[in-house]
Amino acid sequence: MHDEAVAHEFQYASASHQADTAVAGMWLFLATEVVFFGALFLSWIFARHFNQAGFDAGAERSELEIGTINTVILITGSLVYSLGVVLIEKGKTRAFIMCAAAAWLLGLAFMILKFAIEWRHDLDRHMFPGADFGITGDLAGGAKLFWSFYFFGTFVHGVHLAVGLGLVAWVILRVWQGAFSAAYLAPVLVVGLYWTFVDIVWLILYPLIYLIGRAT
């Protein structure tokens, strides 16, 4: 902590009291997110259990390569942001900005691969479960369910990632302006927690979409 008293809101005893509380609040928020996505994953697994053949027929058409590259991209993004946090704790503000910017670019790369390329491929192949759905026959029903979950799940995850991109950009800006530094790290930590959480969601989506169907 710096010598000069750092500003804090009047309900807190000190700046560190406020910072610790902010981190605690983010953990609790992430708990709500776990329940939020938990309901999705539960529905997904439940539906697959009763329509396994159809789900697997649907999953075979997913783009394993893009999915795998995207997984690597996201994990790397988390890693470099976390590295940045270690660096800014040691006062290396510029290094943090480099790391956070790299994480931001990786996040953007994920979005482009996922939505501009993969979704486009999927739509071109009539994988959207609408009237001209590309899978016909007995297994069409289950495959439709799979692709419904696919588009829904990746969309909701994408929205979370978009929020994450906004937050990381904001952190970079404020660090650049000198508002956040080793003396006042709470927002940097809080955004980092969220950023990593979004990756963890993807680490569950990835096997659900690309792997389980191919394994059987």
């Binding site: 539906a47 479960p129 609408g130 069409a140 029903g141 289950g142 369910l145 419904s148 979950f149 829904f152």
Partner: peptide, 18 residues
């Protein structure tokens, strides 16, 4: 909402939803 808008979805018994 997804099911309502796109008329296909997770709770539709005709395609295996519950």
């Amino acid at each position: 909402t997804f099911e309502r808008i796109f008329h296909v979805g997770m709770f539709d018994p005709t395609i295996g939803g519950d």
